[in-house]
Design a protein around this nucleic acid. Structure first.
Lengths: 203, 203
DNA sequence: GGCAAACCTATACCAAAGTATATAAACCTA
DNA sequence: TAGGTTTATATACTTTGGTATAGGTTTGCC
């Protein structure tokens, strides 16, 4: 019997999903409210086949938590779940090697089918998100490619040093990009830049 | 057998809640994805006892939809449900005469108990939201009043100096507050603090 | 070839952010 | 009254952020 782990910090969502899945007699379901707890459970005695992780959840850190988890537990299939469902996030997760993406707007039946599909070794990706036209914002406020990438990291609250490591460039260069971003977006610090990027629905 | 209507535009949430409630042998559950459809169902043949309405749902228009529904169907008990859970909204709904408020962060068991409670003719209101006097988010991550005020300015991208001027305190004091905020929210800089505050629907 | 633009690095400097301790008044509560 | 919490301030310090200037690549275009 497949063992499934549902990790979400909203108890209501978590419990109801688990209850729904548990109703299906061929699923065994456990739940947790954060990534750290999920990792502990996975490292435990009971072997899990599939883990459903909420995108907004303590410890996730954007997609980093998912990436780490996939790296640390390569034998487990991971499915990302999100209510806000930005297509790029979903695609990025899939690109990382996630087994699937579940928008919370999906029907419960679709969810169960998707989970079966994933357990069968396939990748599940909602048709609605395959639209190609909504890729990365390639022009926002006249920002260059590298500046967009920098802004993206800025929106996670990363420091210049962290951004430098992520983009594999020197910290001074990041500072340059940040300075240009602030000028082009006409704001005075990184926090404001992150805020208006978010407000404009980026990332 | 009590008849319950669950209206939410997220199919996953809706279906799983309905399934969870339906499991309880003394509940009969129907679902819809918007207020208009909910009203149609209520006006139909099947008599409903209780309607659970999502705050973010087509036709709700903030609390106006709830108010209209309560006026038009005074014989039905209405419970408001929300994931973002601003205390003021909950209180306002209760003040309007709603029978209860369900934050999505509630446990599934609490939900069922709350529903029984409401069906018994009582009003259900989560203990965590009972802080009455302040309209502002008065409890978030265990932040104090002053820390909340500081966080609010943080969310505009203000500098410590600007916050100090706004709150009429010394800049060092602002630094203290910021430091405590970062610790309590478990983040490492002001940008992350602002981001997660926004994500949690504050300010 | 020459030129512009995006990209990267370096040095240096100053401002702002964040940490660490210590002190103290106001307030609530046991 | 004693003790805890919140708020506030101060001094001192380290780290990070942001600016300025000067060069150095690569790419592509006229």
């Amino acid at each position: 019997m497949p063992n499934i782990l549902v990790a979400d910090d909203h108890e209501l969502v978590r419990d109801t999903i688990a209850a729904y899945l548990g109703q299906q007699d061929d699923f065994q379901v456990e739940t947790t409210n954060g990534l750290a707890e999920a990792r502990t459970l996975i490292e435990g005695i009971v072997p899990f086949d599939l883990a459903i992780l909420d995108y907004h959840m303590p410890g996730m850190d954007g997609l980093e938590g998912l990436e780490r988890a996939m790296k640390d537990f390569p034998h487990i299939k991971f499915v990302l779940m999100s209510g806000v469902a930005k297509p790029e996030i979903a695609r990025e997760a899939m690109a990382m090697g996630a087994s699937g993406f579940l928008p919370k707007s999906a029907a419960a039946k679709s969810m169960v089918n998707a989970i079966r599909f994933v357990l069968a070794g396939e990748q599940y990706f909602p048709y609605a998100l395959t639209g190609v036209e909504t890729q990365k914002p390639d022009s926002f406020g006249g920002l260059s490619t590298r500046e967009i990438e920098t802004l993206e990291h800025l929106c996670t609250g990363a420091s210049n040093k962290e951004i430098a490591r992520a983009l594999d460039i020197a910290e001074v260069t990041v500072k340059l990009h940040v300075k240009n971003i602030l000028a082009k977006l006409n704001v005075s610090n990184r926090t404001q830049a992150a805020l208006i990027a978010k407000e404009n629905g980026l990332f």
